[in-house]
Amino acid sequence: MNAENSPPDSPLVIRDMTVAYGRKPVLWNVDYVSPSQKLIAIVGPNGAGKSTLLKAALGLIPRQNGEALFFGQPYQAVRQRVAYVPQRSSVDWDFPISALEVAAMGCYGRVGWFRSVNRDAKNTALAALEQVGLGDVARRQIGQLSGGQQQRVFLARALAQDADLYLMDEPFAAVDATTEQSIVSMLQALRDRGKTTIVVHHDLQTVSEYFDEVLLLNLRLIAAGTVSEVLTPQNLKATYGGQLSILDAVGQRMSARQSVTS
């Protein structure tokens, strides 16, 4: 690992992070140092804790143990440099709000408290929407957009924030192949501008085509590194194979026992 990628400058460093939902642990002792200016995929089976990893790193759900540093600092200190793109299903798309207003939310941090969204923010948001090819539907209510367009509105909101690290939760879920391609080329353009992107991804087939680095996850970190290093038969077997059932069973037993005793 060269000096540029050493921990203090790394966009995301996770140290010994354990996360539990309720009483059931869903991530065990994850240690990870992300390289910078790369397109990184988090891959693993359903329920492997992929989304949880991002959310816990951002502090959206509590960590039981461990810490996450962004650019060598706690998240609170560098919020504006980190953009989070939640799953599309996490919001109510009937909400009476336009694509432009959603994209402008990326600028709220710069606009500040008590002020209404100013012209600067609106222009930034519109530029971001144009960048993702939604310039002509900017004024539409978000419920009138297709699934792929909704996903791109979220992307535009992150772009409007102009961050250095982008954390995306399943941006390819339920979008058509064309949208997937256009999102990938946008992410690659971000990387070429020196940004880092970490994406929760569900499709093992396209990992080597889309991404530079990959992080294999199944309740614990199996392997992380460049795509060619990590995607070995042994690693994949460890991620998707049956050996993990014991760890899972232990988690469930722990939760069952504690709910009896408490």
């Binding site: 939640p86 109510d92 709000i97 939310m105 941090g109 408290w113 008590f114």
Partner: peptide, 21 residues
């Protein structure tokens, strides 16, 4: 009315609002 923008954000997308600090 002063907090319109912030109240709107927490109503629409809580997770994003938390992530925004």
């Amino acid at each position: 009315l002063l907090l319109r923008k912030e109240l709107l954000l927490i109503a629409f997308d809580r997770e994003f609002a938390i992530a925004q600090g």
